[in-house]
Design a protein around this nucleic acid. Structure first.
Length: 91
DNA sequence: CAAGTGATTGTTTCC
DNA sequence: GGAAACAATCACTTG
């Protein structure tokens, strides 16, 4: 119970260049599951796919997430240079 | 120095 | 085009 939603509290407004952030492991996993889950569940709707996706995501194991987490790591670095370049020009 | 806090990321389906 | 479930994140903010 720390920061689940985003009701609002502190934190600056937004960066001038706003390098945004990186994707999450779920984003990479979802990229592969969207076509697979939906392919195995033809007819299922957002109510099922959306929830079903999350359940399966953890249904696997940290080992299955591994490939996705790996991509997340690479993407994180992507953001790292974004921020670096953003901070450089910002100065 | 430490903790947490928000902001964001992408998918799906739906009107 | 945006909304909500689903999850991770994790770099920045602040005291």
């Amino acid at each position: 119970m720390s920061g689940t939603r985003k009701p609002k509290t502190t934190r600056k407004k937004k960066d001038p260049n706003a390098p945004k952030r990186s994707l999450s492991a779920y984003m990479f996993f979802a990229n592969e599951n969207r076509d697979i889950v939906r392919s195995e569940n033809p007819g299922i709707t957002f109510g099922g796919v959306g929830k079903l996706l999350g359940e399966k995501w953890k249904a696997l194991t940290p080992d299955e997430k591994s490939p996705y987490e790996q991509k997340a790591e690479n993407d994180k670095k992507r953001y790292e240079q974004e921020k670096a370049n953003y901070l450089a020009q910002q100065q």
